[in-house]
Design a protein around this nucleic acid. Structure first.
Length: 464
RNA sequence: CGGGGCGUGGCGCAGUCUGGUAGCGCACCUGUUUUGGGUACAGGGGGUCGUAGGUUCGAAUCCUGCCGCCCCGACCA
């Protein structure tokens, strides 16, 4: 993309409503614009990152054997009356009435809807196990939305639901989600720690929250420092292998890690003192096993091998996709701006032309631009006729991991400058070498956990 | 919902106390000049001062209602 042809309304000054780094930077980098309290428009740059995260979530869900679909944002109140949650949910649920005076609601979650789909179409234990998910906008009428997209009222969330014949199978689904989530977050450049949590209004016995450590996190967390050494990495997982998934769960949950809701001071104090950590975290996902809480009242049963109906065991599993954009920035920025992990960066590299209008510099930039695209990468070429300082500031603000700086002086010696946004270190090299190096960085990690995303602007539908 | 604060051009703000018909910086447009870490100069466009009503010869300014937004708290992916 050429910056002159893009829509990137960056701000020099910070809008006064933004209190935390990620919110400030998302506004300044032209990623979002507030539409009303807790509701945001996603401008092109923000939308691109959101879509990248969505794509990673889809790919990892499909890898785990879960099936994508899409449910509506608006739901009928009747289903919620069946489950008993229409009254239980409270004012956080946005209730709407249509022209026929029917009670509707903007879905805060989808257990009822998915259970209705399940009971209509699944009747046999032979159709199990089944895990369906979708990524869709949700609305929860928070008392006080804040922190930009980290705590919006409208938010984009992946929510998945498993249906199993037995508790044992359902717990495997739980484990499978835990494993796939670990892989998902690592691909986004995040360390998200599974912590034992409280089930809240969803209900259920087993639940873990995934938390990203950050000073501005909303939850207080307590953990054994050893847990931060754990990496999912590039290990191969067979998601149908119960023992393997169970082993990963044990590896990642055996050390103490809890939110303030479940914190137990006595247990915590058994950890050697130098390993005890009290910090803050941003919740970016949660998994639940809740058994037959919905299937029983809503009549979601299958016929078992003996011909008798049995209510299915269920769980639900969420990843806050829009919140993750804020969480990633919160975990990765400096005083100049965002620092995108390679896996989620909106563009792979920036090209800065120090002397727009200079024939040689222009030609070199065009060549670099074409070469990067030829490698399947998605560069952003700052071809505006502006002083260099402004271009550097913009690049630093929007935080692309790599920048190639092209100027007449360097070109006299046949070199351009390759700069890492993370370290700030620059290296002079031939333009071809810079392209090679960037391509290698992205290609070597393609789709692997712990690192980087697949190639550039892949179709959104590769996961289907 | 309790407590605090704010609504003045796209963004950041002054002007409100003490009423006299709107201003500054950035951004934007034109021109010249520049360009190696947010160039300089000159000219220019854009605001029924959140909204409704009231007081007054006269309201951004005083009074009342309403709306919106932000911060702290309870609540939450």
């Amino acid at each position: 993309m050429r910056l002159s042809k893009y829509f990137l309304p960056v701000l020099k000054e910070t809008p006064s409503e933004a209190q935390i780094a990620s919110h400030r930077l998302m506004l300044r980098a032209g990623m979002i614009k507030q539409a009303s309290a807790g509701i945001y428009s996603w401008l092109p740059l923000g939308f691109k990152v959101l879509r990248k995260l969505e794509n990673i979530v889809h790919e990892e869900q499909v890898r785990a054997g879960h099936i994508p679909m899409l449910m509506p944002t608006l739901q009928s109140a009747d289903l919620w009356r069946e489950s008993g949650r229409y009254d239980a949910y409270g004012p956080e649920m946005l209730r709407i009435r249509d022209r026929q005076d029917r009670d509707m609601l903007y879905g805060p979650t989808n257990e009822e809807l998915i259970t209705d789909i399940f009971r209509a179409h699944v009747g046999s234990y032979r159709d199990l196990p089944l895990t369906l998910y979708h990524i869709q906008w949700k609305f929860r009428d928070e008392i006080r939305p804040r922190f930009g997209v980290m705590r919006g009222r409208e938010f984009f969330m992946k929510d998945g639901y498993n249906f199993d014949l037995t508790k044992e199978d359902a717990l495997h689904a739980y484990n499978r989600h835990l494993v796939s989530y670990l892989r998902t977050y690592e691909r986004m450049g995040l360390q998200a720690i599974p912590m034992r949590a409280d089930s809240g209004p969803i209900g259920g016995d087993d639940t873990h929250e995934f938390l990203v450590l950050a000073e501005t996190g909303e939850s207080e967390v307590f953990y054994d420092s050893e847990i931060t050494d754990l990496k999912f990495g590039a290990r191969e997982i067979d998601y149908s292998d119960k023992a393997q998934c169970q082993a990963v769960l044990e590896e990642f949950t055996s050390r103490y890690a809890r939110t303030d809701e479940t914190h137990d001071e006595a247990v915590f104090n058994q950890i050697p003192e130098d390993r005890r950590r009290v910090a803050r975290g941003i919740e970016v996902g949660q998994i639940f096993y809740f058994g037959t809480k919905y299937s029983e009242p809503m009549g979601a049963t299958v016929q078992g091998p003996d011909g008798k109906p049995v209510p299915v065991h269920m769980g639900s599993h969420g990843i806050g996709v829009s919140r993750l954009v804020g969480a990633i920035i919160e975990a990765s920025h400096d005083d100049k701006g965002i620092i995108w992990p390679e896996g989620v960066t909106p563009f792979h590299a920036g090209i800065v032309n120090l002397k727009q209008g200079d024939g040689e510099a222009d030609a070199a930039c065009e060549k670099l631009y074409a070469a990067l695209k030829g490698k399947g990468l998605d560069p952003l070429y700052d071809d505006r006729d502006e002083r260099a300082g402004g271009k550097f500031a913009t690049m630093d603000l929007i935080g692309l991991p790599w920048r190639i700086t092209v100027g007449p002086r360097g070109l006299k010696n046949g070199v351009v400058e390759l700069t890492s946004r993370r370290t700030g270190e620059s290296e002079e090299m031939a333009p071809e070498a810079a392209v090679e190096k960037i391509a290698e960085i992205y290609a070597s990690h393609r789709g692997e956990a712990g690192t980087v995303e697949p190639m550039a602007d892949r179709a959104f539908h590769t996961w289907m």
